[in-house]
Amino acid sequence: MSEWLLFDPMFRVPFLTGLALALALSLVGAWLRMRNEWLAALGLSQIAAAGAMAAVWLHGPALLGAFIAAAIAMLARTTLPRIGNNHYALMILIGWSATLMIGSMMDHGNVAGETFLRGQLYFASTQHLVTALILLTVVAVTYRWLSPRLLTARFFPDYHQANRIPVWPYRTCFALIVITAVVIGTTTMGAFPAFAMLFVPSWVGFVIVDGWQRSVIASMLVGTAAYLIAFVVAMLLDQPFGPMLTIVLVLAGTLRFFTARRRRIKTIAVDDLHPY
């Protein structure tokens, strides 16, 4: 029966939503990893889950609640002079505790809280699909404009200020992309599966190939392949999608061990040629 469910039109919208998110989130994850901000993804996803819960409690749309909460967290982040893992860890703790506290005040709150933490891809609506496709389109269109700016800011942090080039256009664009990616990821895949999709693909992609463009493509391929495997296996085995995706992504992480040896050999060879 499960095999037939794979081809059921009822699952087309969830499948396409997840596919668009796999592509978009793995690319956004590459940007976050390049900026050494990957923990921010988990912090924001937990805050988004709390916002979605608060919206459900107030009988509002979960997507809007998640977006507002993530936007407030992102805004607070920009006001701090130095943001680091300590702040992201606080976001994780605040988001997790708020999600469960709000859940305890609601009828069936535990179920709702579990849903946002674990994911509900099979219940993705056309609204989710449209938002995911808009996100993917924006990410694809802005990639060539945004990447060099983010890379320059990473290695030459005051280059734009020094040359009177406004930083708000690319910073705002990047912030909106991250917020949207985290919110739509959290409200469809769940907080932890969305974080796994932001974290693992680039963790693998950045070590299996050399070069920025190639490592971004590799990250997207790893994310998409993991998604397709997780979707099919979860259906065939009647398992929940969120945990299955997380497990498949964790298993994909083992690809690093095969490439680590290659990288070590290469490093030794380069050192032999250029001992300094």
Partner: peptide, 22 residues
């Protein structure tokens, strides 16, 4: 136009960016 080479630039432990790209 100004460019600023920072003291003690942080070497990212796992970034596949090539020398030519930087």
């Amino acid at each position: 136009t100004i460019v600023h080479q920072w003291q003690r630039p942080e070497l990212p432990p796992e970034l596949a960016l090539l020398g030519s790209e930087l």
